[in-house]
Simulated assay, not measured.
Amino acid sequence: MIRRAVLADIPRLQVLLGQILSVHHAVRPDIFKASGSKFSDQALKELMFNDQRPIFVYEDDKGELLGHLFLMIQEAQGSAMMPNKTLFIDDLCVDEAARGQKIGETLYQFACRKAFEWDCYNLTLNVWNANAGAVNFYERMGMTPQEMRMETIIHPHLENEQ
């Protein structure tokens, strides 16, 4: 079952956010810390009551929270952009112990339904190129690249100083 997150979900959300951070650290240790969370408990509380940035959770029939979906409604910005509304997946995670059960696919399809329901033009997200598993997953879901962000590392030695 997918439902809106509640305050009691925060400890479990933090575990899942830690798993995502661990994956990101594995592929880009120069950017991501080895442990921690993208959001503080307070930030999660605030997001839970923000209808522009809803958090949904996937709960199994035993009441165990096995995944989450952080969404963000975005409006087109700038005079050169066509007016439209986008549903942005800020975070999609399935517990590493529950992967392979189509939970990620279920959460993704839920996001597609919400985008349709909320009259969004498209559904977008960011994914790190080095995270091959996530890239393959989103391609299987039918997503295609919209734009590419490129980089040049200027100070590689700074990685060791932080």
Rank of each mutant, 00 (worst) to 15 (best):
G36C: 09
G36E: 08
G36Y: 08
S37L: 03
F39T: 03
F39N: 14
F39R: 11
S40Y: 11
S40H: 13
Q42R: 11
Q42S: 10
A43N: 14
A43K: 15
K45T: 05
K45W: 06
K45A: 10
L47G: 06
M48C: 14
M48L: 14
M48K: 09
F49P: 01
F49W: 07
N50L: 08
N50W: 06
Q52M: 11
P54C: 13
P54V: 13
I55D: 04
Y58D: 03
Y58P: 01
D60M: 04
D61G: 02
K62P: 01
K62T: 00
K62F: 00
G63N: 01
E64H: 02
L65E: 00
L66I: 01
L66W: 02
H68I: 11
L69K: 09
F70Y: 15
M72C: 12
A76I: 05
A76P: 09
A76Q: 15
Q77T: 15
Q77A: 15
Q77R: 15
G78M: 08
G78N: 04
G78F: 06
S79E: 06
S79A: 10
A80M: 11
A80F: 12
M81L: 06
M82P: 12
M82I: 13
P83I: 13
N84C: 14
K85P: 08
K85W: 02
D90L: 10
D90N: 14
D90E: 15
D91F: 00
D91L: 05
D91G: 10
L92G: 06
C93P: 02
C93K: 04
V94F: 08
D95Y: 03
E96F: 06
E96G: 07
R99E: 12
Q101F: 07
K102I: 05
K102M: 07
I103S: 05
I103H: 04
G104M: 05
G104Q: 09
G104T: 03
E105Y: 10
E105F: 10
